[in-house]
Amino acid sequence: MNLNLTLIGQAIAFAFFVWFCMRFVWPPVMQALQERQKKIADGLDTASRAARDLELAEEQANEMLRESKEQSAEILEQAHKRSNQMIDEAREQARQEGERMITQAKSEIEQEVNRAKEELRAQVSRLAIVGAERILEASIDEKRHGKLVDKLAKEL
């Protein structure tokens, strides 16, 4: 158990090893550790952010769904209203058309009646003239007495 040069040799070796460890061993391992730590922290961060995004997106989707439902209901209601309106309009139109046709037919009938009356009147006046001629046996000149007869016919 003599103290000798070994002591100094050991101290030198120790110093060298510590220097080498400090210079070449510690930094890369520490760096790798820190980088991994950062990476994990980043990953966790991203994950939590993604979860938040997902929540937000779900909320948005729900909102949109609700809105579109409302819209469709509105559209449906409008369509109902519109169809009812159209039916009403069509009904009204048909009624008016009918009425118009009825009045037209009535006026036609009236005209027909008038014309028939006119014709009848003319025929009656001619008949009357013919009858008078027969009675007067050509004593009456058609031209001279035409006016008179027309007057007569109009009074009929």
Partner: peptide, 16 residues
């Protein structure tokens, strides 16, 4: 030192 240096040089930040 050799062992630790070897690992230190090849250290990945991924799965060790």
């Amino acid at each position: 030192l050799w062992l630790f240096r070897k690992v230190g040089k090849a250290a990945t930040t991924g799965i060790p």
